[in-house]
Simulated scan of single mutants.
Amino acid sequence: MTDTVFPLEPSAAEAQAAIIEEFGFFSDWTERYQYLIDLGRKLPEFPDAWKTEEHRLHGCQSMVWIVPEGDAQRLVFHAVSDSAIVSGLIFLALRVYSGRSAREILDTTPDYIAAIGLAKHLSPTRSNGLAALLEVIKARAAQA
């Protein structure tokens, strides 16, 4: 694991634009899946103590844990999965949403998913898991 700190870009919109640009470099989905796997390896350390039922994301076939921190001014999300591709999906979601204000999170539609073709190339269970992850992020922002 690395010490990646989110946000990487100043705004959620800029993060989405960067993701779309990066995925545009790849000509096929084999390369894009490999890139997702590589991104997943860049997730920050996630303490084993956080891998509890309380933090488990339900609705995903893989094991996923998510821990939100912060307040309406700045929400930070920590998450990890036991699946390499799902870890990459988590990385992308955190890149767009983690470290942002609750208002920016709520105002940001995850357009990058359709723009890079994820919607068409994920299995139904991975799509459901990604939707569940985004739902938790949006719900936490709404609570703040």
Rank of each mutant, 00 (worst) to 15 (best):
residue 108 T to D: 14
residue 11 S to T: 10
residue 66 I to L: 12
residue 85 I to K: 09
residue 47 P to G: 00
residue 85 I to S: 14
residue 78 H to A: 03
residue 32 R to N: 13
residue 11 S to R: 08
residue 25 F to R: 08
residue 97 Y to A: 11
residue 116 I to P: 10
residue 97 Y to E: 04
residue 16 Q to T: 14
residue 49 A to P: 08
residue 110 P to M: 01
residue 110 P to E: 00
residue 110 P to Y: 03
residue 109 T to R: 13
residue 24 G to E: 13
residue 133 L to W: 02
residue 32 R to E: 10
residue 46 F to S: 03
residue 43 L to P: 00
residue 54 E to N: 11
residue 46 F to I: 03
residue 84 A to Y: 03
residue 31 E to D: 12
residue 75 L to Q: 11
residue 30 T to P: 02
residue 71 D to V: 05
residue 45 E to H: 15
residue 140 R to I: 08
residue 107 D to A: 11
residue 133 L to H: 01
residue 62 S to I: 05
residue 22 E to R: 11
residue 130 L to Y: 13
residue 4 T to H: 04
residue 74 R to N: 05
residue 45 E to D: 14
residue 80 V to E: 00
residue 89 L to C: 10
residue 20 I to N: 06
residue 141 A to V: 11
residue 70 G to H: 13
residue 27 S to Q: 07
residue 93 A to V: 05
residue 39 L to I: 15
residue 65 W to F: 13
residue 97 Y to Q: 06
residue 123 S to L: 13
residue 25 F to I: 03
residue 31 E to Q: 15
residue 9 E to K: 09
residue 136 V to F: 11
residue 66 I to E: 06
residue 123 S to C: 07
residue 24 G to S: 13
residue 110 P to F: 00
residue 45 E to S: 09
residue 122 L to D: 10
residue 19 I to P: 02
residue 136 V to R: 11
residue 111 D to G: 14
residue 52 T to H: 06
residue 60 C to R: 00
residue 85 I to R: 08
residue 102 A to N: 10
residue 87 S to V: 04
residue 14 E to H: 07
residue 5 V to L: 14
residue 140 R to T: 08
residue 124 P to A: 04
residue 117 G to N: 13
residue 116 I to V: 13
residue 69 E to V: 06
residue 136 V to L: 14
residue 54 E to I: 10
residue 103 R to N: 15
residue 58 H to Y: 08
residue 87 S to M: 05
residue 119 A to W: 04
residue 91 F to A: 08
residue 85 I to D: 02
residue 136 V to D: 12
residue 73 Q to K: 15
residue 60 C to G: 00
residue 103 R to W: 15
residue 25 F to Y: 08
residue 131 A to D: 01
residue 11 S to D: 09
residue 14 E to P: 01
residue 33 Y to G: 12
residue 79 A to W: 02
residue 28 D to I: 10
residue 37 I to W: 10
residue 42 K to D: 03
residue 21 E to W: 10
residue 128 N to Q: 15
residue 53 E to Q: 06
residue 116 I to L: 11
residue 92 L to C: 03
residue 55 H to D: 04
residue 115 A to H: 09
residue 141 A to K: 15
residue 47 P to M: 01
residue 50 W to Y: 04
residue 140 R to W: 11
residue 142 A to Q: 15
residue 31 E to V: 12
residue 97 Y to T: 03
residue 113 I to Y: 04
residue 60 C to Q: 00
residue 132 A to M: 06
residue 141 A to D: 15
residue 70 G to R: 12
residue 40 G to D: 04
residue 8 L to K: 09
residue 137 I to T: 09
residue 73 Q to L: 02
residue 17 A to T: 15
residue 112 Y to G: 10
residue 50 W to M: 05
residue 35 Y to W: 09
residue 132 A to Q: 01
residue 60 C to I: 01
residue 42 K to L: 13
residue 62 S to F: 03
residue 34 Q to R: 15
residue 17 A to L: 12
residue 136 V to W: 12
residue 72 A to W: 06
residue 141 A to Q: 11
residue 2 T to H: 02
residue 129 G to E: 06
residue 123 S to Q: 08
residue 72 A to C: 04
